[in-house]
Design a protein around this nucleic acid. Structure first.
Lengths: 224, 224
DNA sequence: CGGCACACGTGATGC
DNA sequence: TGCATCACGTGTGCC
């Protein structure tokens, strides 16, 4: 129930890399081959809201110095395996004549290509992040990041709460009991936690109390 | 064992929100109000290793279209910022001689400044993320992102496990338990009552808790 | 017209 | 030496 925005990530990726190598010349040759096919990005639980302009869904660039593309995804990370593999039959063209003024860089194009790939990869990571962080559907990258850390913290604190609650306060303590009475927190945190998961609200709670002298025995049985 | 980057995260957070770009008018009255204050990022359990080059540790640019830089360099490691000659602080120049070739762009500088801020902000978010995700100390941005999503998923699954484990039982009786949860009153009245009679405050309270399945046994012994 | 957010190419820098 | 990654300035589209 958490995932499956993957597909469109894939899509996006493939989309990005759809670009044919035009011959670049001094005059930018447009090359309008722009991907289309927009989709309402994130799915699932998020309240969909198409961002105004932030999202790179369907970018329509105009290629100032259009040149080929060839992509080569370096997955290398867990669980992210994009198919991609477009690898169009990259058409030769590597060194034209009429290179750039001044220094004859042997391959500026590798560089630009590499950088492009890097950027693309990074964007995919952004998508991935967007897909795991809830209720982030618009927002720009920066906000996405901060929301992500907020979410992480929330998760961590929730885990903390859960596990302290699971193996709760260690029994057998000797200390000034007033402190305990002051500790409203334990109860309220419990309540808050419970309120977050209505599905776990017990249907019944059965309590048995027996008091003998200074000792009290309390049996609690919870049915969900 | 999970925390302690909190402080700086908070810091970062505060940093983020501290921003209000004044209007750069023709004579922008400087207002370099840019947050800086860097801190040495990651701490704690990570194996200390200053990343090689990825981190923005102070760049020395060469001023292509020379225009002043205003602070805010976001160095990663502790102090060490050579301010250097920052060139003419607020020199009241923005549009003097027409320097730009051809088209006189009246304000490219706002743009470049804005972009710079954006970049900086984004980097701070990256720091923040780095501080919350464990065992990410080096890594480039991309890997950081993917690690972040991995971490989030891990947290989520852990939460899932915890809460199913917390109460993984089957239902039985009936009766709406919410009423019980709402009964904060019972505790507070008890407290109030007790506070009226300090002489009855117990010196020690011994509590024993045993949980078996859906049943909890609590033994309470009070010494006055 | 300005602000904002993005993607792009490019110089730099470390391996 | 290439090959990564980064930050920077710039062009562009959108409110």
């Amino acid at each position: 129930m958490i995932v499956e925005d993957w597909s469109m990530v894939q899509l996006t990726k493939s989309i990005f890399s759809s670009k044919q190598p035009g011959h670049e010349s001094e005059f930018h040759n447009s090359t309008p081959s722009i991907p289309f096919l927009d989709f309402g990005m994130v799915s699932g639980d998020q309240k969909e809201r198409i961002p105004e302009e932030n999202q790179p869904l369907l970018v329509a660039k105009k290629e100032t110095t259009g040149l080929g593309r060839l992509s080569s995804d370096s997955g290398a990370d867990s669980d992210s395996n994009f198919a991609s593999a477009d690898t169009e039959s990259n058409g030769s063209r590597s060194k034209k004549r009429g290179r750039k003024p001044g220094s004859g860089k042997e391959s500026p194009i590798n560089h630009v290509e590499a950088e492009r790939q890097r950027r693309e990869r990074l964007n995919h990571r952004f998508y991935a992040l967007r897909s795991v962080v809830p209720n982030v559907s618009k927002m720009d990258k920066a906000s996405l990041l901060s929301d992500a850390v907020a979410y992480i913290k929330e998760l961590e604190s929730k885990i903390d709460k859960l596990e302290t609650q699971l193996l709760g306060q260690s029994p057998k303590l000797k200390l000034n009991p007033m402190n305990d009475f002051e500790h409203q927190s334990s109860k309220s945190t419990f309540d808050n936690t419970m309120k977050q998961f209505p599905s776990y609200w017990p249907k019944t709670v059965e309590v048995d109390v027996k008091i003998v002298g200074s000792e009290a025995m309390i049996r609690v049985q919870v049915r969900i």
